[in-house]
């Protein structure tokens, strides 16, 4: 595996991050936006582990951060889904374009 340069791994995570960002910006369904967010978080996880393994193999702090991120991502997903469901219950609509009541 050492013949794979660090840059390629980083490009993978970059590509995944911006795919997630694109999805977050264009998807109108809130659940789909949440999924895009998960992709972005995962690309960050990849980064942590890659840096840890390639640049600081003597420690495992990057891995520890990955674990924390996964835990927090789970909490975030749960809260976001609760909000989405509550919104759906009130408006029968989870289109982000229509969720602009606060403006008025």
């Amino acid at each position: 595996m050492s013949e794979i340069p660090l840059e390629h791994l980083l490009m993978l995570s970059t590509a995944l991050f911006f795919i997630g960002a694109y999805g977050f910006l264009t998807r109108r369904n809130m659940i789909a936006m949440l999924m895009s967010l998960e992709l972005m978080l995962n690309s960050v996880n990849i980064n942590f582990i890659v840096f840890n393994k390639y640049l600081f193999p003597d420690t495992i702090e990057g891995l520890g951060f990955t674990i924390f991120i996964i835990a927090i991502a789970a909490a975030e997903a749960a809260v976001a889904i609760a909000i989405i469901i509550n919104l759906y219950r009130n408006t029968k609509n989870i289109d982000a374009e229509n969720a602009d009541h606060l403006k008025h």
């Binding site: 960002a21 977050f24 910006l25 264009t26 982000a96 602009d100 606060l102 403006k103």
Partner: peptide
């Protein structure tokens, strides 16, 4: 600019 749409804001932020 102030459209009230979340994703517009996200785009500006980005």
């Amino acid at each position: 600019i102030q459209s009230g749409k979340v994703q517009d804001y996200a785009l500006y932020f980005f």
